Computed example of a mutant assay.
Amino acid sequence: MPLMRIQIDSDRYTARRVLELHRAGRIHHESRNAARDEVWRRGRTPAAEPVFIGITNGRPVRLVYDVEVHSDTTA
């Protein structure tokens, strides 16, 4: 299945918290849901849960997720 890379704007505090949760094997549900919602906004259907990849160093800080999408749905 194809992957869609999603970047979500965040603040530094939240980005650090998401990274800490990821390292502890836990999930930041709000950002994962935001990544899933962004896939839907782009007209694709998620095929699996978003996978946290990391954070960017730019400003604004962005959370990076990869989301598997169904290949047969497009906007």
Rank of each mutant, 00 (worst) to 15 (best):
P2H: 01
M4E: 06
M4D: 03
R5G: 03
R5M: 03
I6S: 08
S10Y: 05
T14G: 00
A15S: 06
R17T: 14
R17L: 11
V18P: 01
V18G: 03
L19R: 13
L19H: 09
L19T: 14
L19E: 13
L21Q: 07
L21T: 01
H22W: 05
R23E: 15
A24C: 02
A24T: 02
A24E: 15
G25E: 07
G25V: 09
R26C: 03
I27W: 14
I27T: 15
H29T: 10
E30T: 10
E30H: 06
R32K: 12
N33P: 01
N33W: 13
N33V: 03
A34K: 04
A35V: 08
A35F: 15
A35S: 04
R36L: 11
R36F: 08
R36H: 10
D37H: 11
D37I: 11
V39W: 10
V39T: 07
V39Q: 05
W40P: 00
W40D: 00
R41M: 02
R42E: 08
G43Q: 02
G43H: 05
R44K: 12
R44E: 09
T45E: 12
T45G: 01
P46M: 07
A47D: 09
A47C: 01
A47R: 14
A47M: 08
A47P: 02
A48K: 11
A48E: 15
E49F: 14
E49P: 07
P50W: 12
P50F: 09
V51D: 07
V51I: 15
F52K: 00
F52G: 00
I53D: 00
G54I: 05
I55Y: 04
I55P: 00
T56K: 06
N57V: 04
N57T: 11
G58T: 10
R59V: 12
R59K: 00
V61C: 13
R62F: 02
R62C: 06
L63G: 11
L63P: 06
V64M: 05
V64E: 08
V64P: 01
D66T: 02
D66Q: 06
D66E: 15
D66Y: 04
V67A: 05
V67T: 07
E68L: 13
E68P: 02
V69F: 02
D72S: 10
D72A: 06
T73M: 12
T73A: 13
A75T: 04
A75S: 11
A75V: 08
A75F: 15
A75M: 06
